[in-house]
Amino acid sequence: MGDDAMALWQEANRIEVLAFDVFGTVVDWHGSIVRELAQLAPAVDGDAFARAWREGYRPAMARVMSGELGWTLIDDLHRMILDDVLPRFGLAHLDEAQRAELNRAWHRLAPWPEVVAALQRLKPRYLLTPLSNGNIGLLTRMARRAGLPWDCVLSAEVFRAYKPDPATYLGVAKVFDLPPERVMLVAAHHDDLAGARACGLRTAYIERPLEFGAAHPKDVSPRPGNDLHCRDFADLAAQLGL
């Protein structure tokens, strides 16, 4: 996009807030969990373990959204899934302290390499916040450890609803007293972006082809509907004129 076109685009959209999906978009959950497991149980297939733990995420949330479970923090859902997964990988012997420490691996997820520097580029112009199903404690500890320069931390916990519930996307606009079109969701997942777009938010897709590990590359082809399609956060900053 040329400079003139970028200026017109920015004026037309007047985006003030960038809200970021976190797991897979900001942080490399797969690689981080693989590294954690390699320290704890090097004989276990870390790739399969990480994917199995993550695969339990949506079914667990569905139990809450259906009313089968009451409102539950993601930390607690992660622990429920972990207790189910461990026997499948020969790790049923882990004691309570070991299980609790492993469950906190989600607080220690590492950002993708370009993320922190790109967020620092974006911060002078935009308000930056995560919009994640992760709970506030998880996201805050993650940000502190990784150096993520959020202006605040917004979570499903704030709205007591998981994405893609409209309450989450519209909740960001309400927090900042803005119309939805002045908020942009940045995410590596098309279903998340579709939910935001349906609520009137702007959307930017981030390619994360290795989200599920090098052995399981993800299709990151452009899809219609998103305002921006970006290789990574550095490209996002560049496309926003920074």
Rank of each mutant, 00 (worst) to 15 (best):
L138K: 01
D4A: 14
L82R: 07
A110Q: 14
P209K: 10
V44Q: 07
G46Q: 07
I15V: 15
I15N: 01
A194I: 09
G90K: 10
M1T: 11
V116P: 01
A118N: 01
F159N: 12
A7L: 07
F159E: 02
R121T: 10
R125F: 08
A52H: 11
R104K: 13
A198V: 03
A12M: 09
G134S: 11
N135P: 03
P130Q: 12
L170V: 01
G171F: 00
E114I: 03
W9L: 12
A214W: 08
K123N: 04
V64T: 03
V175T: 14
L240M: 12
L40R: 13
V183N: 04
W112A: 01
G171R: 08
D219Y: 00
L170G: 14
S221Y: 04
N13L: 15
I81V: 15
A12T: 12
E36Q: 15
Q98S: 14
L37Q: 13
M1N: 01
G90V: 09
E11K: 13
R145H: 10
L236A: 05
S32D: 09
A188I: 00
A7T: 14
R51E: 05
W9S: 05
L69C: 04
A173T: 05
F159S: 10
A156I: 02
C199R: 01
P130I: 11
F233H: 08
A97I: 12
V153I: 15
L40T: 09
R63K: 13
D76T: 03
L127W: 09
L242S: 07
G56H: 09
V64E: 07
A214P: 01
F233W: 08
H30E: 00
L94V: 07
H107D: 15
S221G: 11
F23W: 12
A196F: 00
L73K: 13
M1A: 07
L37C: 13
A238M: 08
R108D: 13
G134W: 05
Y57W: 13
A173I: 06
N133V: 06
R125C: 05
A194H: 07
R108M: 08
V115Q: 03
G195L: 01
A48F: 05
G200M: 02
L228H: 10
A146C: 09
R54L: 02
R223C: 04
P166F: 02
P111D: 06
